[in-house]
Design a protein around this nucleic acid. Structure first.
Length: 595
RNA sequence: GGUCCCGUAGCAUAAUUGGAUAGUGCACCUGACUACGGAUCAGGAGGUUGCAGAUUCGAAUUCUGCCGGGAUCACCA
């Protein structure tokens, strides 16, 4: 890499000219802004204490040194405290030759070190997936892929919340009013069917509360005493007691939900290496709590409830076991964390969970540390912002929840409409066009969501839907399709150039900026992995596509008469399409040959 | 009220992590070889980066205090 060579040369320069010994890392070498001449820029302000000279003088001296010492440096200019360096075309060409054929360009080999376990999705089995899950799923999947690309071993895991009072509510409603309805008998998707019964429960429960209030019962008390909620609680006790009939129903209804989730996940294009179920792990937490009691790091109150005192760390006391001995959310998460650690001994335990749970994960880590689990240090909560609608948050009560399946279908339908308006492709079979519209719709959706910095709250406007023009997934897909079209044409004309035959050319301006941008890709992957940010990959992809379009606009490719230039441009285009595919692949977005 | 997060053009967003004149898209104007694919390209207009201080060669970015928005502080998950 040229940057490290420059840093090394600068280290020598400082040693020789200014008699100072420094680490190469102190040199700030960045891309030269397009409005200035040059390729790379050294910021000299931090070096003034070494040179004890004016910024311009220091920059000139260092620039001269580099120009003398490094054949790659063909020129330099100084503006204020910025030393702009020109890098030889031969350097960029040699990069081009070494990288353009490499399918894995930008991807590191897997390092031999403990894995990263990343949990995402984490659905409840009482309702279908919605827009919030979509952001979660896309984010988790993409971060996992980016980490893999940066050389990490990664395990994607899902934790399904398949037990608890909320599940019992759906079950109870189905028992009472379901008439034996199944996904098969009704033709309804399993998660939707179960979700409907959850909603039905809520409706009937509210009616009961209202009746009680009419009879003069206090509203809070009514909520606790309504027959339906008592039944649901009784059912939960039965479930925990292993009641056969209840367990059977529970298994069946959950299986409907899983079949429904599978369809949604498949359509979304996400997957998991392992699925944990809370019903299988919730007991482990209790053992940990007992361990803490024995060690004296937790304490029991008079009513029998167990707590962890975090007041000396600026937090509150945290409940770990109810007075009746049943476990709470925290208890379960302690258990699953331990299990996950035992399963994989990971270097990092990541949780992709909304920022509403920041406090929960802060507490989780602290409690585990109190238990003396040194691996708790590796817990990382990848906290992301909520998705809001123009009128505010999604509220199931107000019917403003955006269903994941509906959304994806709508996206594909919009893609179809747009394509038809533009009058494309009569020669596609129905299957081919369906695949394409799906690819475009999902690409738009994924890009729209992933281009936003994870930690930011984002706004989603269903009416305006998602753009297909400008900074969008479709723009990048279109760019790719156009490149592929050029290459098809070239191949059809019998032109199939090889990278190592390219030589003796000078880079045109747009060729150079494009090539330099391609050169950046590996660093972008690293930075995105470091920051857990698919948004950085999305922004890079957009810049790259935009840059290519400018190049494409300014220069002829196939019509270029100088065959050496023509061949180079074909290869440069092919290289671009490859990197676009790699980058967008990290976001789970496919790029079509035609669109 | 305590703790944490966020305020960038009408809207949506970026800024190489403290670097040059704060980029980009949508929407709005104006243009583009009679298209190697116009879902494209070029140009215009739009900003006191919520406000006020502090730190320094240099601040959207760090610190302090306000203002505004959100989350959380459950024997819910």
């Amino acid at each position: 890499m040229i940057e490290s060579k420059l840093a090394e040369a600068l280290t020598n320069a400082v040693k020789t000219m200014y008699q100072q010994t420094v680490q190469p890392a102190i040199f700030q070498i960045q891309k030269t802004r397009p409005e200035f001449e040059g390729d790379l820029t050294v910021v000299v302000f931090p070096l003034l204490r070494l040179s004890r000279k004016a910024p311009e003088t220091t920059a000139s001296e260092l620039g001269q040194w580099l120009a003398d010492e490094m054949p790659e440096v063909t020129g330099f200019n100084v503006i204020k405290g910025f030393l702009n360096l020109e890098i030889a075309d031969t350097y960029w060409f040699s990069f081009f030759k070494s990288a353009s054929d490499n399918e894995k360009f930008g991807f590191k080999q897997q390092q031999n070190e403990p894995p990263v376990v990343i949990e995402y999705s984490s659905p409840n089995t009482n309702k279908p997936l919605h827009l919030g899950h979509v952001r979660n799923n896309l984010l988790g999947w993409s971060v996992a892929e980016i980490l893999k690309a940066s050389g990490k071993k990664v395990l994607k895991v899902n934790l399904v919340n398949d037990r608890g009072i909320h599940i019992c509510k759906s079950m109870l409603a189905w028992q009472k009013w379901g008439d034996g309805k199944t996904p098969k008998s009704s033709g309804q998707k399993g998660d939707k069917l179960v979700g409907d019964f959850y909603v039905l429960f809520d409706k009937k429960y509210k009616e009961q509360i209202a009746d009680l209030v009419k009879q003069g019962v206090d509203e809070k008390e009514a909520a606790l005493k309504a027959p339906l909620i008592l039944e649901a609680k009784a059912m939960l006790v039965k479930w925990e007691g292993g009641d056969e009939e209840i367990r059977k129903l529970w298994k069946e209804m959950n299986s409907w939900v899983y079949a429904g989730f599978d369809i949604t996940y498949r359509q979304m294009g996400i997957d998991f290496d392992k699925i944990y179920y809370e019903s299988e792990t919730y007991l482990l937490g209790k053992a940990l709590v007992n361990e803490g009691l024995e060690k004296g790091v937790f304490f029991k109150k008079e009513d029998g409830s167990v707590w962890c005192d975090l007041t000396d760390e600026g937090l509150d006391e945290k409940l770990l076991l109810r007075s009746d001995g049943t476990s709470v959310y925290m208890t379960q998460d302690l258990g699953t964390a331990q299990l996950r650690y035992d399963d994989y001994h990971p270097q990092k335990l990541m949780y992709v969970v909304g920022n509403e749970q920041n406090y929960h994960f802060d507490v989780l880590q602290r409690v585990l540390k109190k238990l003396g689990k040194s691996w708790a240090e590796g817990i990382y909560h990848l906290s992301y912002g909520m998705v809001e609608l123009p009128h505010g948050k999604m509220k199931s009560r107000e019917g403003t929840v955006v269903d994941a399946d509906d959304l994806m279908e709508e996206m594909a339908a919009t893609a179809r409409r747009t394509s038809e308006e533009l009058g494309k492709f009569d020669d596609f079979t129905p299957e081919e066009s369906a695949r394409l519209y799906n690819m475009i719709g999902m690409g738009a959706l994924k890009y729209f969501i992933l281009k936003v910095d994870p930690k930011k709250t984002m706004l989603f406007n269903p009416e305006e839907s998602i753009d297909f023009n400008g900074n969008t997934g479709s723009f990048i897909q279109y760019t790719h399709a156009r490149i592929r079209s050029v290459i098809r044409k070239a191949n059809a004309a019998g032109i199939e150039p090889k990278a190592n035959s390219v030589s003796g050319l000078l880079l045109q301006k747009k060729e150079k900026t494009l090539l330099k941008l391609l050169y950046d890709f590996p660093q972008v992957v690293d930075a995105a992995a470091e920051a857990y940010s698919p948004a950085q990959i999305a922004n890079y992809s957009y810049d790259l596509a935009k840059e290519f379009n400018q190049f494409y606009h300014d220069h002829s490719i196939l019509k270029e008469e100088d065959t050496a230039k023509r061949d180079f441009r074909i290869l440069l285009s092919a290289f671009t399409s490859k990197v676009l595919r790699s980058a967008m692949g990290l976001l789970g977005i496919q790029l079509p040959e035609r669109m």
